[in-house]
Design a protein around this nucleic acid. Sequence first.
DNA 1: TTGATTTGACCATC
DNA 2: GATGGTCAAATCAA
Length: 277
Amino acid sequence: MEETLINELVQGMELTMQLKNHLDPLASSPESCDFLIQKILSSYDKALSMLNLVGELHQVAGILGPSSQSSPGSENFDPDLNDQCPRDVYKKRKTLPRWTEQVSVCSETGLVTGDDGYNWRKYGQKDILGANFPRAYYRCTHRGTQGCLATKQVQRSDTNPLIFEITYRGRHTCIQTSQEIPAFASTGKEIPNQNQRNFSPPSIWSPICSRCSCPAEDFGYIENLQNSDSDITEIASAPTSVTNSPIGNLDFSLDFDPNIPFDTSEFFSETAERFTH
DNA sequence: TTGATTTGACCATC
DNA sequence: GATGGTCAAATCAA
C-alpha cells in the first residue's frame, strides 16, 4: 500500500516535470497540457484516496483547479442545472464534497488572514442553535453564468472570536478572471498562468503583518470586530488569498514568493516528502 | 441603473 | 416538529 502510494506520488512528480516542459507554448499544444494535468490529478487522487483524505483535501484540490475527472467530488457543469427544480438542487448538493478550514483574524490589526481567491455572493444568514454568532451562506458569483455550484458557510468560532470557521461545499467549476483575483494584481508582480482552465491562485503565500507577524497585512482589507454580522460578510469576500491548510496530520502551509512563478513540481515534491515521512 | 446584501419564508433532512 | 440550507423580494450602495 505504502509503496503504491509512493509510486503514485512519484509518477505525479514526473508528470509535473513533463508538464513544466510543455508549458512552453512553442513546444507543446494546450491539448497535451490538459492531458498531462488530468493524469497528474488522477495520480494524486489515487494517492489521496489511499489515505482516505480526499474529502478533506479539496482545499488542496482548489490549488490545482477543479478539473479533476476522477475525483469523487468533481462536478462538471450541468447544462440542465438552471432548469432543474429547487428540490433537485437540494438532492444534488447533498452529494457535494464538503470540508472545513479555519481562518484567523489578526488581533491587533483586525485584518483577515484568509480567503480562497474566488468571488462569493452572500445569499443568506441564519442564527444557529447553540452558537453565539450567526452563520452566513455564500455561493459562487458565477453560479448563474457558469453554473458553478460551489458554496461556503462562514461562522465565527464560539470558543475563539478571532477564528472563523469556513465550510466549503462543492468545487468550483467556474473560470475566474484575473480581475477577480486582485491578490495577484495588487502585488504588481508575476501572475501565474491565468489562461489555465479553472485557474485558482496558490493559497500558500504569506505576506507578514509588520505589527504582530501574523500573515495578514498587505491585504488592504479591514474588518470591524465590533460588528459580528459585517465580520462574516467581509471575511468571506476578502479579495486575497492566504490559507494554511491543516489536513489531518498534514499541514500544507508553504511560503510563496510572488517573484517566482508558482512551481507545481516543487509543491508536489514537498507533498510527497510529507507523505513518506 | 445595476449589482450586492438583508431578511422572512419556504423546503429538505433528521 | 426542530433545525439547517436556500430562495427571492425588498433594500441598500456605488
